[in-house]
């Protein structure tokens, strides 16, 4: 099966000479069309840097990123702009209040990407915007509202609709439910679980919390200090984690059932990770 996204040996460093810090140490990861993958890592693990590298916002120092068979890393400004304009790769941020313009109506926000890409008449843009809103389960009477008149969950769904309007091949979702309370979280996860599977849209969920993406992903990749230390099916990663960090991650997840991991075991897992280096 040909891969939609192929991240191959990506290295990213900031600074020069003695101040140089390597953030990613040769990361490889691939996603097939329609696949849903979780990228899990703690603060400073490099997960946001990896996302930015895939989007072409951060320059890599080695390796390559291929999307739909094309190498998209190292593109010139013009080629990068044209790739972005195609809308094949879309990004949904943690906080929709920051990604949606507070003065722009839902209708215009969703239609903006379509207008920039061009090739559609104004009525077509309007129809597509309405369809995108419907596909995230929101009624058309929200089209005239601005973000301030929506609940947190509605705003995040509008941000998702905005990404979907461009009929992307891949959605990058950075902590899409972390800023939401329980009720809104369920709504958005219910949507994301099935979203795009018919159209073959792939999803890459980026999160620090295994628990928040376990229910919506087929596979999990664990990023630790700039390296992917483990990749596997979501079930295997949770039930049979191999790397000391993954074990600690699973043992640290809060559950209603206690999960069978006690404080003593967690202490052992922390020690094992410290010894691991």
């Amino acid at each position: 099966m040909s891969e939609l996204l192929e991240v191959d040996g990506v290295e990213v460093s900031y600074g020069r000479g003695r101040a140089e810090r390597r953030i990613l140490h040769g990361v490889s990861l691939s996603l097939a069309a329609g696949e849903s993958v979780g990228l899990i890592g703690e603060t400073g693990s490099g997960k946001t840097t990896l996302a930015r590298t895939i989007l072409g916002l951060t320059r890599l120092t080695a390796g390559s990123v291929r999307f739909d068979g094309e190498t998209v890393s190292g593109l010139g400004a013009r080629a990068l702009r044209s790739f972005r304009r195609s809308g094949r790769l879309q990004y949904v941020f943690q906080d929709p209040l920051q990604s949606l313009d507070p003065d722009v109506t839902v209708r215009d926000s969703i239609g903006e990407g379509l207008r920039i890409r061009g090739g559609l008449t104004a009525p077509d843009v309007a129809t597509r915007a309405e369809a995108a809103l419907a596909s995230v389960g929101l009624p058309a009477d929200l089209l005239g509202r601005v973000p301030g008149q929506l609940s947190g969950g509605q705003r995040q769904r509008v941000a998702i609709a905005r990404a979907l309007a461009l009929q992307p091949r891949l959605l990058l979702l950075d902590e899409p439910v972390s800023a939401l309370d329980a009720a809104n979280r369920i709504q958005v996860l219910d949507l994301l679980r099935t979203l795009g599977t018919d159209q073959g849209i792939a999803k890459l969920f980026i999160s620090h919390d295994l628990g928040s993406v376990a229910g919506v992903t087929d596979r999990i990749a664990v990023l630790f200090r700039g390296d992917i230390v483990e990749v596997g099916s979501t079930r295997d990663i949770i039930a049979r984690p191999q790397h000391p960090y993954t074990r600690l991650l699973v043992g640290s997840a809060t559950t209603l059932t206690g999960g069978g991991v006690d404080r003593e075991r967690r202490r052992e897992l922390r020690q094992a990770l410290a010894d691991h280096g």
Binding site: L210, G215, I238, A239, V250, T255, L256
Partner: peptide
């Protein structure tokens, strides 16, 4: 139950 790791546990 639906989205946490409980499902797998």
């Amino acid at each position: 139950t639906a989205y946490g790791i409980e499902k797998f546990l």
